[in-house]
Simulated scan of single mutants.
Amino acid sequence: MFGAVLLLYAIPANVRMIPGALPYPALFPQIAAWLFIALGLIQVFFVNAQVQVPSARRILFFGLAAVLTLAALLLVDRLGYLPVMIALMAGVVWMVRERRWAWVAVVVLGLPVGIWLLFEQVLQRPLP
């Protein structure tokens, strides 16, 4: 359902079309929205899971992740993409208690820098 909201409302309302720009600006958000739809349908039709009430600790971690994500959303315009996303990834890695240093480095530094390089340098699409 989230993918449908993205496709029908969020992307058309928030992505400016630039004539002649390739790839066009809505391409990656639309791919993500279709993936949400497809993966959700796979879960509905092919996963036979028992419904379980999450523990208080899991609910707390979910709330903390939501607060971290909201803080990142509010700070990205002021501080820029890279410092905010590196801090967000560091927070997520701390929450899941990852101990393998190579994996920590990839997630905390490699992922935000890689995404920045792809969009800003290769595709020449600005990030906040």
Score class of each variant (00 low, 15 high):
Phe2Leu: 14
Phe2Lys: 01
Phe2Met: 10
Gly3Glu: 04
Ala4Leu: 15
Leu8Pro: 06
Leu8Met: 10
Tyr9Ile: 04
Ala10Trp: 08
Pro12Glu: 12
Pro12Thr: 03
Asn14Ala: 13
Asn14Thr: 15
Pro19Gln: 11
Gly20Arg: 06
Gly20Gln: 02
Leu22Ala: 10
Leu22Lys: 02
Leu22Thr: 15
Pro23Trp: 05
Tyr24His: 15
Tyr24Pro: 15
Tyr24Thr: 13
Pro25Gln: 14
Leu27Ile: 05
Phe28Cys: 13
Gln30Lys: 13
Ile31Gln: 14
Ile31Asn: 11
Ile31Cys: 03
Ala32Glu: 01
Ala33Gly: 08
Ala33Tyr: 09
Leu35Lys: 05
Phe36Gln: 05
Phe36Tyr: 09
Ile37Ala: 02
Ile37Glu: 06
Leu39Gln: 03
Leu39Arg: 13
Gly40Lys: 02
Leu41Asp: 01
Ile42Tyr: 14
Ile42Leu: 07
Gln43Ser: 10
Gln43Trp: 01
Val44His: 02
Phe46Arg: 10
Val47Lys: 08
Asn48Lys: 11
Val51Asn: 13
Gln52His: 08
Gln52Lys: 08
Leu60Tyr: 12
Phe62Val: 07
Leu64Glu: 03
Ala65Glu: 03
Ala65Thr: 03
Val67Ser: 06
Thr69Ala: 14
Leu70Cys: 07
Leu74His: 10
Leu75Gly: 09
Asp77Phe: 11
Asp77Ser: 15
Arg78Met: 12
Leu79His: 09
Leu79Ile: 07
Tyr81Asn: 13
Tyr81Phe: 04
Leu82Ile: 06
Met85Lys: 09
Met85His: 04
Ile86Phe: 07
Ala87Trp: 12
Leu88Arg: 01
Met89Gln: 14
Gly91Cys: 11
Gly91Asn: 11
Arg99Asp: 13
Trp101Leu: 10
Val104Gln: 14
Ala105Leu: 12
Val106Phe: 04
Leu109Ser: 08
Val113Arg: 00
Val113Thr: 12
Gly114Lys: 10
Trp116Arg: 06
Leu117Ala: 03
Leu117Asn: 05
Leu118Ser: 02
Phe119Ile: 09
Glu120Val: 04
Leu123Tyr: 08
Pro126Ile: 01
Pro126Ser: 11
Leu127Gln: 06
Pro128Trp: 00
